[in-house]
Structures are given as structure tokens and as C-alpha cells.
Design a protein around this nucleic acid. Sequence first.
RNA 1: GCGAGAGUGGCGGAACUGGUAGACGCACUGGAUUUAGGAUCCAGCGGCCCGUGCCGUGGGGGUUCGAGUCCCCCCUCUCGCACCA
Length: 855
Amino acid sequence: MLERYNPGAIEEKWQKIWQEKQVFRVKAEPGKPKYYLLEMFPYPSGRIHMGHVRNYSIGDVVARFKTLQGFNVLHPMGWDAFGMPAENAAIQHDIHPNIWTRENIDNMRKQLKRMGLSYDWDREFATCDPEYYRWEQLIFLRMLEKGLAYKKSSSVNWCPDCQTVLANEQVEDSCCWRCGNEVEEKELEQWFFKITGYAQELLDEMANLGGWPDPVLTMQRNWIGRSVGCEIDFPIENGDASIRVFTTRQDTLFGATFMSLAPEHPMAMALTTDDRREEVEAFVRKVRKMDKIARTADDYEKEGVFTGSHCINPATGRRIPVFLANFVLMDYGTGAVMAVPSHDQRDFEFARKYDLPLTVVIQPEGEPLDPTTMEEAWTGSGTLVNSGPFDGLDNEKAKEKIAEWLKEQGIGTATVNYRLRDWGVSRQRYWGTPIPVIYCDCCGIVPVPEEQLPVVLPTDVEFTGEGGSPLARIESFVNVDCPKCGAPARRETDTFDTFVESSWYFARFASPKNDQAPVDPEEVGYWLPVDQYIGGIEHAVMHLLYARFYTKVMRDLGFVPANLSEPFTNLLTQGMVCMETVACPEHGWLYPEEVDNGTCGKCGAPVTTGRTEKMSKSKKNVVDPDHLIATYGADTARLFSLFAAPPEKDLEWNEQGVEGCYRFLNRVWRAVSDNIELIRTAGPVTGGAVEGAARDLRRKTHETIKKVTEDIDGRFHFNTAIAAVMELVNAIYAFEGRKEHPEVLREALESVVRLLSPFVPHISAELWSCLGHEQSLEETGWPQWDEDALVADEILIVVQVNGKVRGKLTVPAGADHAEIEKRALAEPNVARFVEGKTVRKVIVVPGKLVNVVAN
RNA sequence: GCGAGAGUGGCGGAACUGGUAGACGCACUGGAUUUAGGAUCCAGCGGCCCGUGCCGUGGGGGUUCGAGUCCCCCCUCUCGCACCA
């Protein structure tokens, strides 16, 4: 055995052995319990970052642990390979997105392999492989047949200068990131997925997601935003039509004193009278000029314009003015809101601004509301007034009664509305999955026949960043014969949102090479659902909701078994990796390696240390995993990212902490190498015969096995599991019975190695082999604790007086309440604090403490 | 703005169901070893008084024999908000 720990050599050695023996290659084995562990696959940006190191280290611990527990573990890896950065690289550096992406994947695969992760690499794929996206196109065609995919008009960010669509992140302060000109809103015909059709099921099935963190479920529930209310028709004065509103507050119907429409509302222009036209059009133009972000996200000023028309409040029969308002969204409800300024704060502010009347219809208990002096809307509960036949009803009761009345009168119905909108999947970009439809002047929208799939992305493209989608300029791609009538037709040039690829990749991993269907139903039946999914909290809503939706769609289309409704049984959301920022007054943000002992490496000026923030290239507070691994080895990199914080919390990177982990591994190495001769011939521990220090070490060993097992399984508290092993190692160093009881020492050392193996697999494998084992750790399995070894003779009891610690006692393990109470009261320090007082109560918590209450 | 979290020594964190606040690690201090440095080993390490004690988990209130943990109000920070992935 080598005297010194040499991570570089042993890591290379064991990675080679694992690869040659195909240790992590799995196949379905009906009858053997399976465990599907999945980490969110990475976007191939070029290099792995610390967030990846952390994510994949966490996943690998669980995968290896479950393997050791005897499960058939599926642990795959792939690439979320479509997306904007590849296209940006093409624009900026004149490199083809495919080449850029493939090179990045090759590099990142190498980096991941260097970490010793237990992936079944045979299942690897990239979403930009035509063999993958052809099945995505097929699923889309089936969705189209079922009406789950459809086209409608929707707005995008448009840069009039570059003549191109911009993503929200490409809009900076309402301006285009490339040219700096102002961004506008523009209407385009786009593809949508009917996720709203699944809104209720997505809500209902959260009841089965007990393995998900509550915050994520809450965020999804709020995102779906179910609300129960009524749709009510307000007839237009002097016309046949009416305006339909959605409201959750039908109890305030009698207080509706005006109407607000979204500026895009289809009736907006028809309702505008000639004398108002100029002003209304100016207002609509102004709202349109705002980009989408400013309009939906910011607390911008509420504004509106009067159309000149009136409609009739169907409850009161009174005529009320119709306004357009910038805060009314066409995407939510019906795009029209009955305004009740007395009981809605936005309507209240709007009414005060434009001098519109208020009617109080809900009277809270206490002082009466006066519409002329109210300073804010009353949104609480109360009794109905000014509401005709409903006066005197409690407002919650009135919601039901008014809903019934609306139905009887034929002017409204009770409905459920969702905040969730259908998923817009069209992107006017090149580097994505082509949407497989053809537009024919005679036949309209024609699906690409299934036997013609995949519609492959053409490669001869020019990237300028201007003039819309590059695909639209490739005539050989665009021009096609109509599959129905044969006449000249045009291909769809939009591509899918990359969230589509990541909505079903987890199912593809069950049968990644299947060339007959998106997935093999038998393989999916065995492997899915994913037992444990691990990824960043930033995906709490969108990715995870889309993946849930897609699973249900694939189920309903018959691609996956009918009982597979949810993709991920358990979810772990990990925190971010952060590091302190450092800046030079002259040179701005500095990389850690540019800082030389508190001064700037470029100019020597003293640097300032800024806040600790999420690692990002722009702030230069990043650590390169390659460098870290080259210096300390993969095991140390893994150990630190697991030890420094529990997985769900943010992790603060700290170089000295890394060294501490490296030191610990050296300490483990020495504990084995220093004792290797002594324990070489030691036999197994044969029962509870040992006493004293040896018995204590045995107890510590088995306590540690129990704690580590419980910390990993379900709780994912790897930091405390590692701390427990550190304690055991400390106990081994302090053990004084090594000569007399080498078998106890051997048991402790072997336990350390086995317990560490999911965290630091290379050093564990090497030490295990040094300890003389022919059988690998994978074959040996996870250690079991011995309940008998855990039994202690004596227990430490804390004694409090009025909740403050005043003493400690050691009592026999079997001592009863009366005896413990007696001994506690006999403690000299207890007597001192009780003196002059009367003991009122003595609380005994078994095995823990005694609290004497006296006053 | 809306939605969801977090706040504990000099630092990262521990305390799982209310029961010894600070496990484990880092940094720091002292000692041993060493030609020296490094590495290693041993000891100490919340604050105040340094004797018993008193104070202490972002701030303020409350419930309880007992609160880091439960309830109410406030402050600060982080994440998501539908074309980033």
C-alpha cells in the first residue's frame, strides 16, 4: 500500500476499472426492484460549472447508495442541446451551432467522466440528435390530431431594427440587446399546447406528490391559479352584443360602476366612438410600445381611456362607461373586467383617477363605508347593501345566491377560471426542433406525414442575428410540395421551445435507442416513474409543470402505460453555488486567481471584497472544476460540495474548506495505512464480549452506520452524514485498545471506508482493496448496524430549574422516573436554586432531561 | 407588484417530532515534533464577568414548565414570474 494518498493515480485507476467492467451499465430485470435516479441534464455550454459538480455529486451519492442497497439503479446522462447560446455563438463567432454544441458536449462528457460519476453512458443522447427529435415531432403530430396543439395569435418582443423576435432575456430596459433600439410588441400566429385542458388534473394529482418539497407544490398551485367565479354578460347600450366578464366577486355585481377592457380586446375598436377614436388609438399604441415584460411584471402606473360607449349592468339596469385599461390582460379570464371601485383596490385607484362613481355594496361590521370619503377599497367580508333582493346577506352566502340568480336570468354562469395559460411553443429560431407542418394555399395547415419524419434541420445556414428566423431564408427547406394535393407549399420555419425536449427526455432514457417509437412501453413500464429527480429550484414551476403535463399527454396518446401519470415520485431541489465577489477599483471584477494577497494581480491596487453571490461569469466569482480536480482530485471536489451545506440550501464556496476536506481524506488514508499491519490478521468481531474502550468504539461504529444510513436515505443530509464519519475517524485516532482488540479497530476502519464510498468512491475502492478484499464494494453492499452494539449502560440526563441548566446526572439506562426525579432534586446545584422556593412541578423527559419548576 | 424561501460564533453549518444552542469542518491561539518551512499530533476557541453566574439564534411582542424550533408584526437578503435553460 502506498504511504501517501495520491488522488490522481487512484482516480484514474478506478475510473478505468469501472468502465472496463461496465459496472454501471444496467438493463431491465423484471422481479428485481428498480430505482431510477435522474439529475436534470445540462445545457452544453462548454464547460461544467460548480452547480453541475454539486448537482451530479448529490445524485451520485444517492445512485451509489441505492445500488449498494441492492436496487437495480438506472442513472443516465444526456444533453439539453438545443437553445439560444449556440445560435448566439454562431452570430458572434461564426461557428455553426451544431459544431459548437458537439464540441461542447465532448468536452463536458470528459469533465463528467473525470468526476467518477456512476452513469450508464450507453444511454447518452443529445436532444439535437435527429433520432431524438424525430419522436418529438411524432408526438406533436398526434397532439395536433387530438387538438392538443393549435395555432393562435400571440404577441412577442419585436426589434423593428433587427427585424427579429427577441427573448425576454434579450430585452434590456425595453431595448434590444444587439442594437439598443426600443423593442415593441408584435402579434404573430404561433403554436400552443393545450396545457389548460390539464389544469385540473395537474392540481388534483399534487395530492400524490408527497415526495415533492411543499414550496414547489405551492408555487405550482399558485401558477395554475384556480379561481371559482362567474362569467357575466353585460349588454352593450344600443346594440345586440354584450361584453362577457369573468369575476370571482359576483357578490359585488351591484357595485359595478364601469367596465375595463384589455386594449387588445376584440370589441375595443368597435366600441370606440368617432369622437374618442384618436385618443383611444393613441392609448393602444402606447400600450403596445411597451414590451411584454414592462407590462406584466412592473408596478407601472394604471392608465386607461374612455371608449365613448356604455354597457348595462345587468343587475342594476344602470348604464356604465366602457374603458380600456392597461392592467387588464387579454390572456386572463375574458379580457374584460367589471369594475367595482368600492371593493377592488385597482378599480378604486382607477375610479379616483378618472373621477368615476362608487357604490358601496358590502358593508363591514363597525363604521359604515362612505363612498365620498373612502381612502381605499374595502376588500374584506361584510353584509350586502344596495343589492336589491340580496340585501342583508353575508357576502360569502351572496356569492352562491347571485351565481344561481345569474343562471336563472340567463345572464351568467358559475365557472372555474385558471391563471395558467396555454403553453406557447413557437420560436422564430434556427437551433431547435423543426415543427413538422406544411402550409398549402389550398389545403391550409397540413401535417408532415409520419413516414417523412424526421424533418431534419438543414445545415447550410447563415447567421446574422437579423431578419427573423434563419430557416425562413433557406429556400430548399421552405419550398416543398403539399403532401395532400402536391401543389407548391411552404414549410413551417418556427422551431419548438427547448422546454419541449426537456419535457420527455426522462422517458426516452428507458429505451434511448428505440427506433420504432418515442419510448418502448415495456422499458418505460419497468423503469418509470423516476424515483428521485434532482435539480435547481429555479425549475420549480415551468420545467417541472411542463414535464408533468407532457407525461399525461403521452399517457393519453398511448405512448406510455395508462397508469403513468406523474413523471417524478420524489423531487430534490438544490440551492445555488455562491462565492464572494472581488473587485479592483481600476479593473473591475476579478477572477479569484487574479487576486494576489488582497491586491489586484494586474495593477497591485488593494481590492474590495463584495457580497457573496451566485457564481457567474459576469461577476467573475467562479471556480473552475478542472483546476480543482487537478489540484485535489475528484473525491475532494465531491466531498466539499456535499459537506459544505445541505443540498437544498445555497452553498458558499470556500477554498480553505476544500483543503479541510482534502486533509480529512488524507487522515482516512493514514488511519488505514498506519494500522494495516496490525489488522491484517484480525478476524471478525464475534459478539458483545468486549468492554471499555473497545466497546465504546464498537458503539460509535454502529451509531455511525445507523446515522449515515438514515441521513442519506430520504433525508439527503449528506453534510451531517459526513460529519458523523469524521467523528468516527476521530474516535479511531483516539482509540487506546488497538493492540488488544484489532478486530474492533478493523470493523471501525472498514465501516469508514464503506460509509464513505457513495461520497468519495475512488479512495474508498482503493482502501477497500488495500484491506485485502477481493470482492468490490459494489458487490459487498451497504453495511448493517447491530442493535446490540448500540446499547449503552448509562444515560446522561440534563437537570434544569425553571428551564435553565443547573446540573447533569449519569443514570443507569433502566432508571425509572421516580429515581431520576429523586436524584435530580438531590443535586447540590439544584438544591441551591430551589432554596426558598416551593417546588410546583417536576417534568421528566425520558432519557433526556428533568425540569424542576419552583417559585 | 405577485408568488416562494432564507436569516444561528470570526466563517460554512449542526440541533429530525418544542427539551444541554453551537456537532462536524474552516479560521485563529498556545504547545509537541522538526535544522527550517510545510505536514502531522495535542489542547483551547460565542460575548460579558472571569467564582458562583449573566446575556446570546435578524428586530419587537406572544404561547409554554421549557422556544433557534410554534403564533403575530417588522427589517434584510435570495429565487421564480410564462421567448434563458
